[in-house]
């Protein structure tokens, strides 16, 4: 195992939504941890529970069960004022839709300073203002942008504003929920480069949520693949790409079109059929470490078959 300190530990987290008699198990027994300074990718198709996972970690939703540990403290459940502040200022989220997540009636300065104000991060107004300007420059905007309103900015610039707002409280962990999905292709690369730069310069820890595995692979050291509320495979990005084991991961990898026509036109596709597992009471899946740092959701029977096939 790794002997780095985890900054975030998620243990058997469940978030179920109840609608009348039906239950939506959006997050169902999810466990993972994120080390200080790393970028951890959470990838899966829409509806698999990525956003719910992020929102439950940052306490926008109450957990149904399970535990969330942040900087060594348990943060799910009731917290006192002091503890709440430690979470709200040290953990920040960047959302997919930079248009919907900015209040149109607030200036850029008001938007960026709001979180710092609530958490009383800076002693004086001047210090706050100076930091807003510093953040704007950090994300590639200028101090002159401070007095403007969100509608005066393009999608890519708005996402920069969201990033500035998230960074002003000097967070230890940033949860980025599909931060580039809503942006144009050429703008996506600009925002990715910015996040890369910030990660290096500020030593940020990032939980990077996305549905695009090529972007996640580029950006993350370790990746968890999610399907129907559960993590099915977790490994370093190279291991996951070179040696995918779970049939869902294989199917996801094979489905991503590669911009290389002579290769792409010949590639083989795998469909994932969940019924092949034939899980039953005696034969339930659990996370099994098949090689150092590579965990796959498998039943004992599947693991035996995997070992057999390897020989």
């Amino acid at each position: 195992m790794d002997n780095r300190t985890p900054i975030l530990e998620v243990k058997h987290l469940c978030k179920h939504f109840y609608q009348g008699k039906s239950v939506m198990k959006a997050v169902d027994d999810v466990s993972f941890h994120v080390y200080k300074g790393e970028t951890f990718g959470l990838v899966g198709e829409s509806g698999c529970g990525k956003t719910t996972t992020g929102r439950t970690i940052i306490r926008l939703y109450g957990a149904t069960s399970g535990e969330v540990w942040f900087n060594g403290n348990r943060i799910d459940g009731k917290l006192n004022k002091e503890e709440t502040k430690a979470v709200t200022s040290k953990m920040q989220m960047i959302f997919q839709d930079p248009v919907a997540s900015l209040n149109p009636r607030m200036t850029v300065e008001e938007i960026i300073s709001e979180g710092a104000k609530i958490n009383k991060i800076f002693a004086t107004e001047e210090e706050l203002k100076a930091n807003v300007h510093k953040m704007l420059e950090l994300v590639g905007l200028t101090a002159e942008h401070a007095t403007r309103y969100p509608h005066e900015f393009s999608g890519g610039q708005r996402q920069r504003i969201c990033i500035a707002r998230a960074l002003i409280t000097k967070p230890d962990l940033v949860i980025a929920d599909e931060p580039i999905s809503a942006l144009d292709v050429s703008i996506q690369a600009q925002v990715l480069n910015l996040m890369n730069k910030l990660r290096k310069e500020l030593g940020l820890t990032i939980l990077f949520i996305a549905h695009d595995l090529s972007v996640v692979k580029y950006f993350s050291e370790r990746i968890a693949v999610m399907n129907r509320g559960r993590i099915v495979e977790m490994a370093s990005s190279d291991l996951l790409y070179d040696n995918p084991v779970h049939p869902y991961t294989k199917s996801l990898l094979s489905a991503i079109p590669i911009p290389n026509p002579l290769l792409e036109k010949k590639r083989e596709r795998f469909d994932y059929d969940p019924s092949i597992h034939q899980y039953d009471e005696q034969n339930q899946p659990k996370m099994i470490e098949i090689e150092p740092g590579h965990l796959v959701s498998m039943s004992d029977r599947e693991y035996a078959a995997y070992l057999g096939a390897k020989k």
Partner: peptide
């Protein structure tokens, strides 16, 4: 755009 071969 990064592709699956782009190094982190």
């Amino acid at each position: 755009m990064p592709n699956l071969d782009t190094k982190g």
